[in-house]
């Protein structure tokens, strides 16, 4: 199994390291030719304005949209989740891929001093709480199709799945818990 990780800007190395620990072939993607022959794609956390620009300019956005139409599974964390959405409530600065029918809000919890850690109950990953790391995180205002995977205690939606697409407000790649990535790899395997 080969998983590409968009390396325009942001925490792509963390995803690659976690996938390699799971003995999956993972590598950075900066140009469209590096998208060939991949089984799944991850869009990491970083600055969505920066990632969106670099993906559009080097024709990654166009190619990812085409591959997604053909069934490529894509997982986005934080800024990556913003890139997956088709509706951003304050999104004039970001040009998303629009692959998921969700509405998201950027920097929804405030500035860096409001960044937080919180254990999450994610039924799809089993009973053990999942360590949620939220950094200037976005939230999901609405899941228009697909399913909600995780909520905060107050009901705020922080992860969702729609077919072969997976999105989280938080950063599983900054933890030692590989369950979220395994969940994505199961989706990738199911698509073969």
């Amino acid at each position: 199994m080969r998983i590409g990780v968009i390396a325009a800007q942001g925490a792509f190395v963390e995803h690659i390291n976690l996938l390699r620990r799971l003995e999956v072939e993972a590598f950075p993607v900066r140009l469209p030719r590096e998208l060939e022959k991949i089984d799944g794609l991850i869009i990491p956390g970083g600055e969505s304005t920066s990632i969106s620009q670099l993906m559009a300019e080097y024709c990654l956005s166009e190619r990812v949209r085409a591959l997604a139409r053909e069934g490529l599974p894509v997982f986005g964390t934080c800024a990556g989740m913003i890139m997956l959405a088709n509706d951003i409530s304050d999104g004039e600065k970001v040009e998303p891929l629009g692959l998921m029918n969700i509405k998201v809000r950027r920097n929804a919890f405030g500035r860096q001093v409001d960044s937080f850690e919180s254990d999450l109950t994610i039924p799809a990953l089993g009973e053990k709480p999942f360590p949620g790391v939220f950094i200037r995180a976005p939230l999901i205002e609405q899941v228009k199709s697909g399913e909600v995977l995780a909520r905060l205690g107050d009901g705020t939606i922080v992860a969702a799945r729609q077919g072969q697409f997976l999105a989280s407000s938080f950063h599983p790649e900054l933890t030692d818990d590989p369950r979220f990535h395994r969940f994505f790899l199961d989706i990738v395997e199911g698509c073969d």
């Binding site: 600055e47 860096q112 790391v133 950094i135």
Partner: peptide, 19 residues
Amino acid sequence: METGTWKVKTGLAQMLKGG
């Protein structure tokens, strides 16, 4: 819910990488 942890402090820097 815990703010100001080492993980979120170093984590923001990780998000800035490659930039």
